[in-house]
Write a protein that binds this DNA or RNA. Structure first.
Lengths: 336, 336
DNA sequence: TTGTACGCGTTATCAT
DNA sequence: ATGATAACGCGTACAA
């Protein structure tokens, strides 16, 4: 493998000049540059990024840490959207993306520390799954770079990109009323999935809608459901026992809605006609598979992009950045 | 940030001794080791992987290069399975995983070269999408490390993990016959997706089944379909025009089958009852969403694992390894 | 515009 | 069992 020195020797210049050419420095004679480029071509020289990174005290790499538990199979579609958002920004800015999925839950904390403290990455994007609060607080304190996809711990003010569903959920409920529903339920997110359960924007939006519609809220109208198809199936059936006259439901996630759909099939009801549903993510797949299914739109791609942009700023400028809250939206489908 | 030297100074030993302790060398006195470990703890020292990698001329990282076009949205579920297989093996062996999705198709070749030649990674896992044949051949020639997920170019003998569907497809067709089908069609993989279209194991299995059943094969019975829901929808409707009396179909992929299911709904037919389907991947999601849907099983996870194991061997021992062919399986669902 | 000398933080070699 | 010294391949600081 040819090195920068070899190139310098062949081109008859100093190593530094070769370095300048590689890094597109303007401070180099055209003729010299030409000679150097020719030498690079002849030797098939490729700069060694590891050496460069050591010298620059950078890894030029961003980490994406997926919590164990992403076997949540189908949540992966949402994760992939976020990941793609992160990836695109990171790559465009000349960084690499390292993906890490700890094999067991206990490894998450150690893995986040390993990635950042051993300088495998310049910064890391974290899911706000349980346990991450510890990491986030320590990283903040030691000025290590991270961004959480959602709020990671209570009173976190910086370095997160959160999605707020309250307005979208409120509109979704009104949409169901407008479609003739008399009694609407909510399958919300699982509180145990997060570090501070209090702040459920699905629930607050749901309550707001009932309030504005002059209807009473009762806890019976709500169940939590983990973001899985089976969970949606199971929890919908339970919710139906709680609210026998329910004729519409808002789901916090697409997989949950899939579970509801399956349950309705098995009950001999046609989803969307005999019973109304609003879904929660609006995955591309959902549009393809169930074009008739109304859905809130979870801005997963943008969340990933924002998180990546924020992290790169942190890496390049240091300090902290105020958290960002994106709004989920609800676009009622065209009626016909 | 404390370095190895700082630790050495504090512990009153040479840097090399600290290095020995870190790397669990047996050649170090117990008492010395204790002192060093104490110094490490006091300084909160973390070894710098970049420096280590420079010295060891390794990046200790494996690349996973996703072809542009992975917007194939739902194929991602399959890709995630493979990725998870790769990840688990790679991490268990103490490597990192770098994920790269070139933003545009033209970047793929350059990106693969960049990753390997600039030593960002020690080796790379490639999809056999078009264009990869060029890379694979050059890498082979220059002894750079790679494994393709499937055969990347004609006559490739080494460094791939392929999945063979011929037997599974054959059994799937017989299953449909056993369920009363008289006329079975095939929605096979898109030939343009690969570099050498000749070797379609779905098609060969399909032909074999018809042959063994004493039925004539005609090209009308087959259509290619890209691995998308829309594609499955569209191509199924076309295939139905070609074969009006078709009463069963084998799909090369799960998203294709989803498209078929949607088409049947819209035709007012109940999938699985009025028209029989066998799917091609058996994603976890498929089991959850359509438990009644029979499917061949695409060993995606194992394919990823095998590819990773192969690549790590190549990285650590050099040379080349003969390609591996995994068998897809068909397990008829329990009838009731 | 170009070159020199040094350092980034670790491991390898060869001593002792 | 431990240490001195030299790499690894590049960028930085400063001088020319």
């Amino acid at each position: 493998m040819a090195t920068l020195k070899d190139v310098a020797k062949l081109a008859g210049v100093s190593p530094k000049t070769v370095s300048r050419v590689i890094n597109d420095s303007p401070l180099v004679n055209e003729e010299t540059r030409r000679r150097v480029l020719e030498a690079i071509r002849l030797l098939d020289y490729h700069p060694n990024e590891v050496a460069k990174n050591l010298r620059r005290r950078r890894s030029q790499t961003i980490g994406f840490l997926v919590p164990y538990g992403s076997d949540f199979v189908f949540r992966d579609t949402g994760m992939m959207e976020q990941l793609k958002g992160v990836h695109d920004v990171v790559v465009r800015e000349g960084y690499n993306l390292m993906l890490s999925v700890p094999l067991v839950k206990e490894d998450s904390l150690w893995e986040a520390e390993r990635l950042v403290k051993r300088r495998c990455v310049d910064g890391v994007i974290l899911y706000p799954s349980s346990g991450i609060d510890v990491i986030a607080k320590e990283f903040l304190h030691r000025n290590l770079h991270f961004v959480t996809l959602g709020i990671g711990f209570q009173d976190q003010k910086s370095n997160f990109v959160e999605v707020d569903f309250s307005q979208a959920t409120c509109e979704a409920v009104f949409y169901l009323f407008s479609r003739g529903c008399k009694r609407v339920g909510l399958l919300t997110r699982p509180h145990w999935f997060f570090n501070f359960p209090e702040n459920d924007s699905f629930l607050s939006g749901f309550k707001k809608a009932l309030d504005e519609a002059g209807m009473d809220f009762t806890p019976q109208l709500v169940r939590e459901s983990d973001f899985t198809v089976e969970g949606g199936y199971r929890d919908f059936l339970k919710l139906r026992e709680q609210v026998p006259d329910m004729d519409g439901v808002v789901c916090a996630a697409d997989p949950t809605a899939y579970g509801v759909i399956r349950a309705l099939w098995e009950l001999g009801k046609q989803p969307g006609r005999d019973f109304k549903i609003v879904s929660g993510d609006n995955f591309p797949l959902t549009r393809k598979l169930f074009p008739w299914l109304p859905s809130m739109h979870n801005p997963l791609l943008r969340q990933g992009e924002e998180a990546a942009r924020m992290l790169l700023k942190l890496v390049e400028r240091g300090g902290q950045l105020p958290g960002v809250v994106l709004e989920a939206t609800f676009e009622p489908p065209k009626l016909h």
